[in-house]
Design a binder for these strands. Structure first.
Lengths: 360, 360
DNA sequence: TTGAAAGCGGTACCAT
DNA sequence: ATGGTACCGCTTTCAA
């Protein structure tokens, strides 16, 4: 039979409470008794209080649930997501808390089960398509939630750590129009979607106000804000959907902006990863970024620097770290549970003045 | 007050068992009663049975514990580790099981607490330094364990999914000596370590039989096997420690093989990531891989193909997937719980015949 | 098909 | 400093 607290208590002729204290409140009993208990435990192969039983009684699990969409590629492959997760893990680890990775399957009922069954003290939502049906269930669990994207998604009771996506994107747009660009393409992922994948890569005609995925929507709207302010009508912009947020898909998307007569002189992307793909596409065509075509990204991932990519720098690790801290050490003041972090425009070599001759 | 099973039972005048059955055994009660229960639950804001209480009673948590070393960079940054984790998550997700990421802090007592408190049905150990003090505690938890590296690490009761590291490395070594190379450098990480980091990058003199980290040890020994069989004494090989398993560190390590009079004509690395760094170092020096210097990696990560890297292809995702399956659906036959997967030598363009003039 | 009772293995509180 | 006693919220026989 597996050893329990009682086993040890019986062995030593003490009470369960005392054995429990030996583990959970060492100051509540004499050092020598504690030593005897611990050694008896060792001898009997008792590895400490059962975590589940302890959690049931104490109401704490020491785990944060992290919701991920079905294929984990996003969580592990996307540099921004990896940075975020690292920050989150850092904050959690500092409080001896673990991360429970919850993979939401395509099957809705199964997804609900996964959420219902998750033994966690809190949920962290980031990179989760905000229209996902399971989110409502997360709320009904009644545990603290922190969100990382749409500040409205969960109502004001949820903590929030994010950036002003739209304003940030606008700064990129302004940078580009200030350089004289008027023939502009925007490469974004998840503009269109079938609820599962990001659709096909290619030009689309979409109203920026209708985009379903919050982050992409805000960034595209931010670009548009800058264009409109400079007198560039949205209809003149070539909007290209990337099927996913990967480098190859950025390159593929770029083809739709480059291989046409009215080639864009600037390509704005909703992520650095896509922008790196666009740069690949330029290279293949013998075009030079910053001279022939200007390119911008978003995030400032490590690779952006080496590529000379003009982008928005955002504190990715910090976003995760703060999310974890808000969950585990919530400040009294509700206002401090809603954080909008600053970003900065980083101008490097992939953007430059428009040198194309005037359009006829 | 938070709603419980009892709340619903009282509301409807039925027993707790019946409410419980409504969730856990739908076939045990009439559909209409079940519907009434579910709708009452919805109305009262009851999100289903408390996961902790359920786990305590049923003895199942639906989670696999994944041990990670302190900084998560290894788990999230290393392509092999990411692939492995993805496979593991896939297997787990298919069984509605989650992954509990356990971050082992540097502080030993805290690490023990993290392991003791982890509510999991099983542990998966990969990429964990095998000399880590906490491992013994994992065993004493008495739950199933699968290991991914040293097959001996946990004794025969643990499941194991791995490859014959040594034989695989030997094939790379043979490929190199068959190409006529005799001036050889080996770049490996974690040859030396201070228990926390991977030490300094630079040449070291170490006996392959003494290396502490199993995977590196086996791969280096495999290289040596090939060299000895070809008459190349180990003393002639330049062994270089890389402080970590990252591209930059590979480049830095390569300097120690390239910037010397008796430059190596072949550099064998214990991972693709390091090898990519070595290729970077060659490029900087105007050397051509496969002509001036031959380079090999290990793993066959996605980037290896584009780089033309000669390497060993191993089924990384599969390793993770099988590990998960062994944990969740253990086969009766113990022999089937110890899997050694096949690998293959992939020859690309970074290796070629030794063209250096004979050494005097 | 439904209900009653007995734990699952601890922790918290209060008494001693 | 140590022990006694509820009770955390559910699942699981077993009986009705």
């Amino acid at each position: 039979m597996k050893a329990t607290l009682q086993t040890i208590a019986d062995e030593l002729g003490v009470s369960r409470s005392t054995v429990s204290n030996a583990y959970s409140r060492p100051d509540q009993l004499s050092p020598e008794l504690r030593a005897r208990i611990l050694s008896a435990a060792q001898r009997l192969g008792y590895s400490g209080p059962n975590p589940t039983a302890r959690s049931l009684r104490s109401g704490k699990v020491n785990a944060i649930g992290v919701l991920l969409t079905d294929d984990l590629s996003m969580a592990f492959t996307d540099p921004y997501a990896v940075a975020y997760l690292r920050g989150l893990a850092e904050a959690a680890s500092a409080r001896e808390t673990s991360l429970l990775l919850l993979n939401l399957p395509k099957d809705e009922a199964a997804g609900r089960r996964v959420i219902s069954n998750a033994a966690v003290d809190a949920f962290c939502l980031y990179c989760v398509p905000d229209w996902h049906s399971a989110l409502e269930l997360v709320r009904s669990r009644g545990v603290p939630v922190v969100i990382g994207e749409d500040p409205q998604a969960f109502g004001p009771e949820a903590s929030y750590v994010g950036i002003d996506e739209r304003a940030a994107a606008r700064r990129l747009g302004e940078h580009i129009v200030n350089l004289g660009h008027r023939d502009i393409a925007v490469v974004a992922h998840w503009i269109v979607d079938d609820g599962v994948s990001g659709g096909r890569t290619g030009q689309v005609h979409a109203d920026p106000d209708d985009l379903r995925y919050y982050v992409t929507g805000e960034r595209v709207r931010g670009f548009r804000d800058a264009f409109l302010a400079a007198g560039v009508p949205w209809e003149r912009v070539v909007l290209i959907n990337a099927a996913g947020n990967q480098r190859e898909e950025g390159a593929e998307a770029a083809a739709h902006a480059l291989d046409r007569l009215d080639r864009a002189t600037a390509i704005l992307c909703t992520s650095d990863v896509l922008a790196l793909g666009v740069l690949d596409a330029l290279r293949v065509r013998g075009l030079q970024a910053g001279r022939d075509v200007s390119v911008t990204g978003f995030d400032d991932i490590p690779e952006a620097d080496a590529a000379g990519l003009t982008t928005i720098r955002q504190p990715s690790v910090e976003r995760g770290r703060l999310a974890g801290e808000l969950l585990l050490d919530p400040p009294e003041d509700p206002a401090l549970r809603r954080l909008t972090l600053p970003v900065s425009l980083v101008v490097r070599s992939t953007t430059g003045p428009n040198t194309a001759k005037e359009k006829s």
